[in-house]
Design a protein around this nucleic acid. Structure first.
Lengths: 194, 194
DNA sequence: ATCAGCATGTAAATGGTTACATGATTAT
DNA sequence: ATAATCATGTAACCATTTACATGCTGAT
């Protein structure tokens, strides 16, 4: 059975413990949003599909009149999750409009190129700061919080990856801005540069 | 006027010089494919939309019986491209199934986590090598090639970014694999064994 | 009483990929 | 002759976002 991307996120989220669709959305937004996104419009229908396919089982857990369904992995779902993890990941598809801008800046508006690189640096710095805040929150929760609080080593590693790669990118773009500035101001009729 | 993502790529590609839809697709695949993708199903319809909106103008350039249309930027298209470049880029949305796997590996199959990190490292190394090959090709073409060959500083910078960030990622994942291995083997009643 | 947040869902629109369809030209 | 590559396009499908719709519960 071919799992959709959303199905993989759901199975992954349910592997740790049973959750409602709402909880899954919150978790994706909080912990995985720097490399993955999912909307209600995907999560709720996919949960139903997965239930029909026998990969998850939902149980009613309404609180008073507020409806609530908590899903957990069925044995087939556990198998499917393991299989997915086992497979070699296909090559990464990246989509970055910022890089696209930098890529074309030279032919559209050369003078702006260094500035665009600087903007990218600022965005990367902001992202790093944001992720650092999440890390601090998670670490704080792990210290005083219940056993629910501590994330596993894989997700901690991914968070670290987000922080460190953003910092690396910020430095890289800053350096690139300087190089591009030198090229622009220096040469003139000699566009070959370098 | 709101430009679609595909429209931005097209305007960017036409900024350097006029091209056919086919050429745009080839160029995207060759030079931008590590951070952007576009299919014929997007490019051809979008070219027509852009022509109707007056941002590009197509001229027939058939060779014998083989049909061919070459598009170039109209003045309005130049303005639109400049505007887009001028705007601050929105925050980056990333989608990485490999990171997703690592993220969940801890709860789905902890013993495999280090190995998954190693696989990621291998993929990053491959990507770096691939991009290095492109760089060598581009540099070679610039030396002996015609005036068509040399890419502008922005796209050279983006290529360098692809190479260096992939190399950084490869090292990071290798280190992460070692850390995760130490964690796994060290602590725990480690019941599952492997 | 009011508001923030919990909780579920659907419909419409948009964006994007894949597969199909056609045929010409160039190199082997 | 045949294969590769040039060249254009459409249709069907799948993924994703956004907006809408509804109502409950807990805190202030």
């Amino acid at each position: 059975m071919e799992l959709s991307a959303t199905a993989k996120v759901i199975l992954g989220m349910l592997a740790a413990r049973p959750r409602s669709g709402y909880e899954i959305k919150q978790l994706v937004d909080q912990s995985a949003r720097f490399f993955w996104a999912a909307s209600y419009g995907q999560i709720y229908p996919e949960l139903k599909r997965l239930e029909q396919a026998g990969l998850v089982t939902g149980s009613e857990a309404s609180q008073g009149a507020r409806p609530r369904t908590i899903y957990k992995l069925a044995p087939a779902g556990k198998r499917a999750a393991r299989e997915w993890i086992e497979q070699a990941p296909r090559t990464l598809e990246l989509r970055d409009e910022g890089l696209l801008g930098l890529f074309f800046a030279g032919s559209i508006n050369p003078a702006r190129t260094p500035e665009i690189a600087r903007e990218r640096a600022a965005i990367a710095r902001e992202k790093a700061a944001e992720l650092r805040a999440i890390e601090a929150m998670v670490d704080g929760a792990a210290e005083n919080g219940g056993p629910e609080a501590k994330p596993d080593s894989g997700s901690r590693a991914v968070l670290r990856y987000g922080i460190e790669s953003s910092e690396w990118a910020a430095e890289w773009f800053e350096r690139a801005a300087e190089d591009l500035e030198r090229e622009t101001s220096g040469a003139r009729g000699a566009p070959r540069g370098r």
